[in-house]
Nucleic acid binder design. Structure first.
Lengths: 211, 211
DNA sequence: GCGATATGGTACCGACTGGTACCAAGTCAA
DNA sequence: TTGACTTGGTACCAGTCGGTACCATATCGC
């Protein structure tokens, strides 16, 4: 009940300190990788002292986790799913879902976040697990909800788990691996739309209306 | 024209020095990551002096490239493609291809190699590029050859590039990302076979015989 | 104006690293 | 035996880093 620390950051100091640090840390990690980035570098970029860094985050790894978590939380899947009445509508929903998913996850920053999490997946499972549970799983769950609905309304016969996996595969193809290895460029908006559309139609052709 | 150095490693010293180093380096990198692994650690594991390391590889990054290259070369795609006469045979070839691909690339060591390459993709593009050109591209090329054949013999109508991407997507689904993030376990032999079979049948249903 | 608190800047500590130099021991040819 | 060469072991160098301590400044309440 002590008086809250008032955010007296209104003096053109930019975003709040914590956000500034997270932003600085993320861009530093993106450019230099986790190991190559020194905490001093982060502090300097954030225009903050190392003490502030350590009093806010405790240690370097926690800064990484915080970065990744913060960015991943903004990827969350679309929340409001309209009621799907016919297969035409299902096609539209899937296309929209795919477009959104591809757009968000091919963002260079997101790709870099995946790279960071993958890099530390062995040593700091927390990092990878955070990304998985905050971004990857919710997206998948959201898609599976669509699939479950589509099945219960008799639009598609397949098992939700299987159809979800199929649609994700049709959507991704080999793209993510290429992006992670920097062997592919980010697809343009048009390519993304085309890809999502094709995945949607392919999916519906693959799972025709039962009965 | 000086006398070749004869490989007098026949004295039960185990594999040749170079291979021993590569093996030691790969397992060290796998366990500890690139940055966390010291060259002394590698030398000790390989029962070799640091001098030997540096005279053979020059620097640490080259050791990583050599590791990855060596392991990636063993993934190469199946070479002998039988002539494909009908769609039944195409199904079998695709299933076999998929099974082999999944079996080899879900190997924990291979996943770790991907992780290493992805980790260094920004700072050492050579590493990631090596993996891409030695393993990923040849596999894709091999599959596209199958697709091109299938098209020219009138078994499938789709553009080879597109059908290749589709089949890879059906095969992979969301698996690789899960493995990289350590959020999924390696699929069993049975699961791999099932997955490859389903990808194959789905693909053929998606691309019916033209005409 | 004054004491308390918090912050930026920075020096510092212990530990570790990549890479090189050097030594002692072993191996080979003659 | 001798001498050239190779190798494992290790000390060493210069540099870096994570994390802490300390100081001087600035802001705040009063």
């Amino acid at each position: 009940m002590s008086p809250k620390i008032e955010p007296r950051e209104d003096d053109a100091e930019g975003p709040e300190v914590r956000k500034r640090i997270l932003s600085a840390a993320l861009s530093a990690f993106m450019e230099g990788g986790y190991a190559q980035t020194s905490t001093l570098e982060i502090a300097t970029r954030a225009r903050v002292s190392k003490r502030e860094l350590y009093s806010l985050f405790g240690n370097k790894e926690a800064m990484l986790v915080a970065c990744i978590t913060e960015r991943a939380e903004r990827i969350k899947a679309p929340t409001d799913l309209p009621a799907i009445r016919d297969r035409e509508m299902l096609a539209k929903v899937l296309t929209a879902f795919g477009t959104k998913l591809l757009t968000e996850t091919t963002d260079p920053v997101v790709v870099a976040v995946f790279r960071l999490a993958i890099s530390e997946a062995v040593h700091a499972p927390k990092v990878a697990h955070a990304l998985d549970s905050i971004a990857r799983k919710p997206i998948r769950d959201s898609l599976r909800t669509i699939m479950t609905n589509a099945r219960s309304t008799g639009l598609v016969a397949g098992e939700p788990e299987a159809t979800t996996e199929t649609f994700l595969g049709l959507l991704w193809g080999d793209l993510m691996t290429g992006l992670l290895l920097q062997a592919a460029n980010r697809p343009s908006t048009g390519e993304i739309a085309r890809r999502a559309g094709e995945a949607s139609t392919a999916f519906l052709r693959l799972y025709p209306k039962p009965g």
